[in-house]
Computed example of a mutant assay.
Amino acid sequence: MPANARARAEMPKIPEGMEAATLGAGCFWCTEAVYQKLDGVVSVTSGYTGGKVDKPTYEEICTGATGHAEVVVVVFDPKKITYERVLAWFWDLHDPTTLNRQGNDVGTQYRSAIFYHSDEQKKIAEASKAAAQANFDKPIVTEITKAPEFYPAENYHQNYYAENKSKNPYCKAVIEPKLKKLKLED
């Protein structure tokens, strides 16, 4: 692991005219890999939010005791991809009906969550959740909460799939099939 791998990534920059969406959909490696493939997405930063510990580490997050969720901050150009469309991908890329779980990943850190940045985003997220419910037999358990402080994850979590797809079996077994299902990779 490179010397700076454990260093924390930088806060995402939101250029003028761009917007941010903060989303928890299980493992942030999977979520990041999907959003990085979408036209109109400027950047994706993996990190933690929604808990009670300042500047948590990945090791602390894994205990489930911090209250934080693994999330991504998706910076996007609303002229190319709307917030509604960003959320449409969110509902497709994970199972929002399982409480504190995505596949084999279990714990509050893997919860389904939308952390909104404005009253308009809150309104859109609530409408999107209501509309998405028609696609699921079980009730959606996704929380919709005002975005608290975001803590970027360590550098080794950033751009994870792109940098590790040939080295980490998780990428081949979990992330790659998800990208194929969503028709984002051959």
Rank of each mutant, 00 (worst) to 15 (best):
Y160P: 04
H94L: 07
S166F: 11
V106E: 03
C30T: 03
E10N: 12
A131T: 11
R85F: 05
V53S: 00
V106H: 08
I81D: 06
P12M: 04
A25G: 15
M1K: 12
L99S: 03
A3Q: 15
F136E: 08
R111E: 04
Y83Q: 07
A162Q: 15
Q102H: 10
K55C: 04
G107I: 01
F28M: 06
Q121N: 09
M11L: 11
A7E: 14
T49H: 01
K37G: 01
D54Q: 12
A153I: 03
P148W: 07
T63R: 13
E149P: 00
L23G: 00
A20F: 04
W91Y: 05
Y161W: 11
A130Q: 14
C30D: 06
K172R: 15
E149K: 13
A134V: 15
A88K: 05
K180A: 03
Y161P: 02
K79M: 04
T142H: 03
P78D: 12
Y116E: 01
F115E: 03
K123W: 04
A33V: 07
Q133I: 14
N155Y: 09
D186L: 06
I114A: 03
D77Q: 06
K138H: 11
F150P: 00
K80M: 11
F28G: 08
R6A: 05
N155Q: 13
F136R: 12
K178M: 09
P177K: 15
A173W: 09
T66K: 03
A130N: 12
M1Y: 12
V41P: 04
R6Y: 09
V44W: 10
Q109S: 08
E19L: 13
N159P: 03
P2G: 08
G40D: 07
S166L: 07
V75T: 13
S112N: 07
Y116N: 02
N159R: 10
